[in-house]
Nucleic acid binder design. Structure first.
Lengths: 190, 190
DNA sequence: CCGGAATCGGACCAGCGACTCCGGTTACCA
DNA sequence: TGGTAACCGGAGTCGCTGGTCCGATTCCGG
């Protein structure tokens, strides 16, 4: 591992890179990963050449977007969990993850389809997030708030599943709330 | 609405059409909807010309596959529901739908992306299925097996969500079972 | 203020996948 | 059994998208 970037990146280059990441995040999440690369470049106010210099391939761009979102989510989860009793922390983080993961499945799926080894390029961020979730789950179980036979894989699957369920009820907050109620009720020890 | 096909379709044509539908169902569900059309034709043992004569566009093929799967599912649901008490019928059908809907979201999403008005081409089959589900839900609620404040949209969203959740646990039947337990427990009236 | 190197940007290239076309073949009907 | 209309098949067309290249431009140290 060579350390940080050997060269601190020129001012305009850094600006463009950041802008590209922002725009890509926005466009990919709202319109899907199939949107042409050129459109992202245009939306960011740069040429495709610039885009491809910063991210040598479209998958690299996707990957960068996913990693950043994951890191933000991990940090926010930690912040949210701190200073709450285990049961509350668990539920609050569950909600946060679900809300943030809108459209994320499509990302990882696209990455996997492209032959990128997701477990290699995202392992670091992903493992950190999973560790956080494992901690939250264990604490909630110790506190008697969640049935003890539930493992981390099931929790992750539930998060993903509830995410897509909620996506289908985007315009009905009351219905979304009922989904959460059902799942939280089902998660309590019997 | 003109009635049935004005001409009964030649023997080989009918055979090819059926074979195409079967192969397309298989390939699309196992390898995704992005698989080239030509490959489906080859797998079915026909040329692309034949494929495109039967289904004038790739979306038409997708649509036909989805409609057929939906119709089968609806029929099987009805059969399964008959002769069971409401609570059991509800759960059994829930499981059935979840199991069968593996990879179906991708279909409808692809259709929607292609600009096809899903609510126009699939309305008939879709409405029938929704009606069945509504009946099952209402019966289960009357029997006191499901919390009464749950609507059909929430049920559909849950079905889709549990479907994707279960997909992530494809190789761990015990974990899948736990997901079902959680959701069923959460669905009971408090 | 200036030189030079890094960056920008869009015209260009290549591969792929959906769809068409038409000569050869095959199934139905009298 | 023969005629004909429908069907088969795959080579070719067209548009689109990811990715490259190089002249023009812009930033930064001295």
């Amino acid at each position: 591992m060579s350390g940080a970037t050997p060269r601190p990146l020129r001012a305009d280059a850094a600006r463009n890179r950041a802008r590209l990441l922002d725009v890509a995040t926005e466009v990919f999440t709202t319109r899907g990963v199939t949107v042409p690369t050129e459109e992202i470049a245009r939306a960011a106010g740069v040429g495709v050449g610039t885009l491809f210099r910063h991210f040598p391939t479209k998958e690299a761009l996707l990957e960068a977007v996913v990693v950043r979102r994951l890191e933000t989510l991990t940090a926010d989860t930690a912040r949210l969990a701190a200073g709450h009793p285990p049961a509350e922390a668990f539920r609050a983080c569950f909600r946060l993850v679900v809300e943030r993961s809108a459209g994320k499945q499509e990302f990882t799926r696209a990455l996997a389809d492209a032959g990128v080894d997701v477990h290699a390029s995202l392992r670091e961020s992903s493992d950190l997030m999973r560790a956080r979730l494992a901690g939250l789950l264990a604490a909630a179980q110790r506190a008697g708030a969640v049935r003890p036979d539930l493992g981390l894989p099931e929790l992750v699957a539930l998060l993903v599943g509830v995410g897509t369920a909620v996506e289908h009820l985007a315009d009905d907050p009351a219905a979304r709330e009922r989904i959460f109620e059902v799942v939280f009720a089902g998660l309590r020890p019997r």
